[in-house]
């Protein structure tokens, strides 16, 4: 059973754009500070119900990556994927923007894009709306 509140959360855009910077929506446990992206109903670490909504930093660091050469029909291969680590101590899987092979440890920023999905196969905007990790620009990251 999903509460109305959770159902609303699912419909929400999974990111916010502030001053041109894309921030992923996430949930932080007010009791133990564990961060989940996407958010969830109950904290797995401590069982606390109800996470507070936060926006992740617009930049992270590539933890690992791959180049996918075979996928399902909705995707145009080859494409790069990476796991991005954020300062908030949460890791998120994102397609990488552009053709350049990602590198472990590389700083990236979140940008909006269609990623490797073929035109016409994009899901309705929802928890899965598309965004990608692009090379970090020289621009200073603001606080948070």
């Amino acid at each position: 059973m999903v509460s109305t509140e959770a159902a609303t959360a699912v419909m929400k855009r999974p990111y916010e754009v502030e001053d041109g910077l894309v921030r992923l929506r996430a949930g932080r446990c007010p009791a133990c500070n564990a961060v989940y992206c996407p958010a969830r109903l109950v904290c797995d670490g401590c069982g606390h119900r109800g996470l507070e909504e936060i926006l992740l930093a617009p930049r992270g660091k590539i933890y690992t990556f791959t180049t996918v050469h075979q996928s399902t029909p909705e995707f145009q291969t080859p494409y790069h994927l990476c796991y991005v680590d954020f300062d908030e101590q949460v890791r998120v899987m994102l397609p990488a923007a552009g053709e350049e092979r990602p590198r472990i440890g590389e700083d990236v920023e979140i940008v909006l894009g269609t990623g490797p999905r073929l035109v016409g196969t994009e899901p309705e905007e929802g928890p899965h709306a598309l965004m990608v990790a692009g090379p970090a620009t020289g621009r200073d990251e603001d606080d948070v």
Binding site: P95, P127, H128
Partner: peptide, 20 residues
């Protein structure tokens, strides 16, 4: 699955672990 909708496949999961 959110990650599947962004292009994650099972080989990709293990490929990324292999890179580590």
């Amino acid at each position: 699955d959110v990650e599947a909708q962004r292009g994650l496949t099972m080989p990709a999961v293990y490929a990324m672990r292999a890179q580590r």
